[in-house]
Design a protein around this nucleic acid. Structure first.
Lengths: 144, 144
DNA sequence: GGAAGGTCATATCATATGAAACGAAAGTCA
DNA sequence: TGACTTTCGTTTCATATGATATGACCTTCC
């Protein structure tokens, strides 16, 4: 192999940078609520989605939250076992499973939301306020 | 549960947005080179790092590239089996394993690099040129 | 020199993941 | 009405992952 390799600079490659940052953030935040509530990352995503809507089907969640069907199903099973959500079968379509937070689930969500927003604040503090909004805006554009 | 849930908007939560975008980008790009070269995402990361340096140890890679120790080790084993890299044990420290691209490996890297840069170009095209640089700069700052 | 402790890569094992198969329930169309 | 197809969530099973243990090798300190 040649002594001088021009090569390819991973540290300038945006898809890589986004992936590393995304993984790091999820894992760090996940460690916080995981230690405190025994909740996994997929479980938190389901909870977060349920904080906005009642009686949500598994399908709606995995379509909206970019998670696998099976992952959502399993997260829901664990959340039900932990008493944080309830599963119901709606009468108008008995193939579906409607998920809803219990009172206990609502409390846990509220606490994790606090942790999450605080976490977001701390890490966005690396940017100026105007840059923070720019970053969020550009992210959303890329995801659209 | 109350009819009106204020809740928590995942779609404004930056750690979540970064994670979803990062995963999506890695998976999409990975599908391209995976189909063509049978290379997995961890394998590509190792290759990419080796494109910049010769005789790199497993340790250097997992420290620098934010991957698990075991993941790097396994990726290296597969890459060696595929004839893309060579493993050597350096005389000055026989605990290490030095990884180096073969000629075949260099060719594959060159092709994947082309695909990757093209992929990056296509997806950054969703932003204005000045925004692209801003985005990259902010990303790097967050990762620092 | 050599014991004690640390570091490196790999092996082991238990868990997480997701593609494909499945059973149950709608929907479609003759 | 009753096959046929589609959709939904779960189960199955093969693979991926990563915490821990292991064995080989270095370093330190006596």
């Amino acid at each position: 192999m040649s002594e001088v390799t021009i090569g390819f600079d991973l540290d300038e490659f945006v898809p890589y940078l986004v992936n590393v940052l995304g993984t790091r953030l999820s894992v760090e935040l996940g460690a916080e609520y995981g230690e405190r509530f025994g909740i996994s990352i997929p479980e938190w995503r389901v909870l977060a989605h349920l904080s906005q809507n009642d009686h949500v089907s598994v399908r709606e969640i995995y379509r909206r939250v970019e998670m696998d069907k099976v992952k959502v199903s399993r997260a829901a099973t664990r959340l039900e076992a932990a008493g944080l959500i309830v599963k119901e079968i709606p009468d108008d379509d008995r193939r579906l499973v409607a998920l809803t937070l219990t009172a206990k689930g609502q409390n846990v969500v509220a606490e994790i939301v606090d942790m999450a927003l605080d976490f977001e604040r701390r890490f966005l503090a690396k940017l100026e306020p105007s840059e923070q909004e720019t970053f969020r805006r550009l992210l959303k554009r890329m995801l659209a």
